[in-house]
Write a protein that binds this DNA or RNA. Structure first.
Length: 615
DNA sequence: ATAGGGTTAG
């Protein structure tokens, strides 16, 4: 019917285009060889491009085909650079670039070549090569090509060079929607979300991609509330909402611990039949797991048709964070059966799983296997996990020994993990060492001081406590204010320690008094040790009852119905007393309380906590 | 015959 619109295609081109998988393309290749057709450079170029672009993760075959050709076309070589720029081996792009350069002017790179090459550099995070490619493309006269320009903005953003982004963008005489969006995204990626917003507001036209870029920018900078409110504005303006928008929305909910809004987002996705991509599924898993609903996270996980390394790693990390170390390791076995190769992030999840399950030997084996089996060099994070693994198991000497034998300089994370273990296992001597090492590395690390002071307080060494206090004062180190958030009725309420500004504060105070009373009636004695400073007992009891999570829990008890779990997200680790008190509250008020602290989850129920006393 | 902007795990 619409044949009048179709353009006559070369029959061989049609044949080549009919194949997408390697198997199909190999059959087509045989056919073409038999007919001697591949001597025609244009057709060979088209074939190579088709093979490479349809199979960016398996480029051996396209390489072989290209090798059979004496004089590959620029089109074929550009296609190879393009395919490699998106592959797991982007560095090979340069081989084809060199082929072009060494062809004795038979070929010369064009705007396509440089556009793909710039994207390769972005992918590689090539801080040295990126600017060199930029120089080369200027020499060849392509710096004013709009595709190349937006590519450069993208590349410099990936390299974290915001000033170069500004320079390139500033030289675009009349930036269009696409380059403006690239710049919005670049500024946000480099942390200047304020400027990104200014640009966004100044854009004469904004399509749904521009909105997505801005919302993602807020989400990536940790400005989750702004991300959500901009999303609501987007809805009101009637802009098209896609699965890409929802990934950022879910990410914002994850960081806020806003389970209700996350559930709403999930329902929205289903109601509007948005495409359940791997990325979106992974964002859902992460949201449910980090909002404390690990069962739902796994339900989504098992429901997915396709899973990539992000999906597996998120699910494993979620299980570990919620205390299901054994389940995390089971999942790793299945991941291997599925032939998904783990990466360095996966090993962070694995080691955390071993740590919460107390599986020291197994953790050590996984750590060893990183380099030996997978060719992944352990990084600082992994060393930190290992110290935590030994420390949590109470094997403090081995933890110290591990630190002392690290091939790279131990970072604050390693000493911090040791210090934490020292507090849990009350090893003052090692704790003092770990704390001093931590301070040596970061003299403003408040955790180093607070933990040490708490250790002194644990052993009633009040001189030690005041000594730490003096040092902190002298060095201008301030304790990070504790902050807990709780979502009620789709709204996120924030409580800072000691802050009385909440409109319902009087009611909260009454609830806190009731909690204290019922705890005392149940025979619970408030432990005054964890307070940082040596203050009067009376005040201590009061100060303790004002830790932000207790205020949030009191608020939760007032505002939510019986039987509904109370979910809190805290910016610091839970203190010992709050942990004990929350256990008791969960029993006395018969309420499940789920606290996500800086490190992991605590599911309090019936007087017990899922962390079993170690966190 | 090829190209540009938005999304996930530590």
């Amino acid at each position: 019917m619409n044949s009048f619109r179709s353009v006559a295609k070369h029959p061989i081109i049609s044949l080549i285009d009919s194949g997408t998988t390697l198997k199909e393309l190999k059959q087509i290749h045989t056919q073409l060889l038999l007919n001697g057709i591949l001597n025609e450079p244009h057709l060979l170029g088209h074939f190579v491009a088709n093979v490479a672009l349809n199979n960016p993760n398996n480029l051996d075959y396209s390489n072989q085909v290209l090798d059979q050709c004496d004089n590959p076309t620029l089109f074929a070589l550009n296609s190879m650079i393009r395919a490699h720029s998106k592959s797991s081996t982007p560095q090979h792009s340069f081989r084809f670039y060199n082929t072009i350069l060494q062809s004795n002017h038979y070929l010369s790179p064009d705007n396509y070549t440089f556009n793909f090459l710039v994207r390769t550099c972005a992918q590689l995070l090539a801080r040295g090569t990126g600017p060199a490619v930029h120089c080369a493309l200027i020499k060849h006269g392509f710096e004013h090509d709009p595709h190349v320009q937006s590519g450069l903005v993208f590349m410099y953003a990936e390299l974290g060079c915001l000033s170069s982004c500004h320079k390139v963008f500033g030289e675009i005489p009349d930036p269009d929607l696409v380059s403006q969006t690239a710049m919005v995204s670049a500024c946000a990626k480099c942390g200047d979300v304020g400027f990104a917003r200014e640009l966004f507001d100044l854009m004469p036209k904004r399509d749904h991609i521009a909105w997505n870029a801005m919302i993602a920018g807020y989400a990536q900078c940790g400005q989750s509330r702004e991300a959500l409110s901009l999303f609501h504005l987007m809805q009101m303006e009637g802009v098209r909402i896609s699965e890409v928008s929802m990934v950022s929305v879910l990410s914002a909910c994850t960081h806020l611990g806003a389970l209700d809004q996350g559930r709403w987002a999930h329902a929205y996705i289903e109601r509007n039949k948005l495409r359940m991509t791997v990325t979106l599924g992974t964002a859902l898993i992460d949201m449910y797991a980090k909002c404390g609903n690990v069962n739902k996270a796994m339900e989504v996980f098992w429901g997915m048709k396709e899973r990539n390394v992000y999906t597996w790693t998120s699910a494993m990390g979620g299980l570990a964070m919620n205390g299901f170390g054994d389940k995390c390791l089971e999942l790793f076995s299945l991941m291997k059966q599925d032939d998904i190769p783990p990466n360095e992030v996966t090993f962070v999840s694995i080691l955390r799983g071993c740590s919460v399950a107390g599986l020291v030997e197994e953790g050590r084996e996984h750590f060893e296997s990183m380099g030996k089996v997978y060719g992944i060099e352990p990084k600082l994070e992994h060393y930190g996990c290992m110290v935590d693994l030994y420390g949590r198991a109470g094997r403090l000497d081995e933890a110290l020994n591990f630190i002392n034998n690290m091939p790279i300089k131990p970072h604050s994370g390693a000493w911090g993990a040791l210090l934490h273990a020292c507090r849990m296992y009350k090893n003052m001597e090692l704790g003092e060492l770990a704390s001093s090492k931590l301070v040596e590395l970061e003299d403003k690390n408040h955790g180093a001081y607070v933990l040490l002071s708490n250790m002194y307080a644990d052993s009633k060494n009040w001189d030690g406590v005041s000594c730490v206090r003096e040092t902190m004062k002298a060095r201008g180190v301030r304790k990070q204010p504790g902050c807990s958030v709780i979502e009620v009725g789709g709204e996120v309420h924030e409580f800072f320690a000691g802050d009385k500004s909440h409109p319902m504060y009087d009611e909260i105070e009454m609830k806190l008094a009731e909690i204290s009373k019922r705890l005392r009636q149940a025979g619970y004695v408030v432990d005054t040790n964890p307070v940082l400073f040596d203050i009067e007992e009376e005040e201590k009891e009061d100060a303790l009852s004002k830790h932000s999570e207790k205020v949030a829990i009191a608020f939760g008890l007032i505002t939510s119905k019986e039987g509904v779990p109370i979910r809190i997200v805290k910016n610091l680790r839970v203190c010992w007393d709050c942990h004990e008190v929350t256990k008791k509250i969960s029993e006395i008020f018969n309420r499940e309380i789920i606290v996500r602290d800086r490190n992991r989850f605590h599911h309090f129920k019936g007087g017990d906590c899922s962390c079993k006393g170690y966190w």
